Amino acid sequence: MARSLTLAGPAARRRLRTLGFLSPWLVGFSVFFAYPLIATVYFSFMHYNQIKEPTFVGLRNWEYVFDQMPLFGPALGNTLWLVVIMVALRVVFGLSLGLLITKIKTGAGFFRTAFYIPYLAPPVAATVAFVFLLNPGTGPVNELLGTLGISGPNWFNDPDTAKPSLVLLSLWGIGDLMVIFMAALLDVPREQYEAAELDGAGAWAKFRYVTWPSITPIVMFAVVTGVVQTMQYYTQALVAGKVASGVNIGPGSVIQPGYPEHSTLTVPQLVYSMGFQNFNTGAACVLSLVLFAIAMAVTSLLMRKRSGLLSAED
Rank of each mutant, 00 (worst) to 15 (best):
M178T: 12
G58R: 07
V179E: 07
M182S: 08
V83H: 03
T225N: 07
P118R: 14
L148W: 12
L168F: 08
G175Y: 04
F93A: 11
H47K: 14
Y42D: 07
L120H: 00
Y48A: 03
H262D: 15
A121D: 09
I249D: 08
P36I: 13
T79M: 07
N78T: 12
M296F: 06
F43E: 04
L71H: 12
R15N: 10
T299Q: 13
S311P: 04
T138N: 15
Y209C: 05
L169N: 04
S288C: 05
Y116T: 08
L198Q: 03
Y42T: 09
R208N: 06
G94Q: 08
L185S: 07
A184M: 00
F33M: 12
M1K: 01
Y272C: 12
L287E: 02
N49R: 09
T235E: 00
N135H: 02
K206F: 10
G28S: 04
A196H: 01
I294M: 00
A295C: 12
N280L: 08
G200H: 10
G139F: 15
V124H: 08
P122G: 00
I117R: 05
A312K: 12
M303H: 12
L19F: 03
I117G: 02
S151I: 10
L177P: 03
R306Q: 09
I51N: 11
Y193Q: 09
A201V: 10
L144E: 13
A126I: 05
Y209N: 07
V298A: 06
A11R: 08
P10V: 01
Y234I: 10
I150A: 02
T266S: 08
A284I: 11
L134D: 03
T216E: 06
S4P: 04
W212V: 13
S245H: 00
P213S: 06
L168E: 02
M86W: 01
N157A: 11
V254W: 09
P257T: 05
P260I: 14
L310G: 05
R13G: 00
F93W: 12
M1R: 00
I215V: 08
K52F: 13
F29G: 10
G28E: 02
F276I: 00
I38W: 14
F221K: 15
K163Q: 10
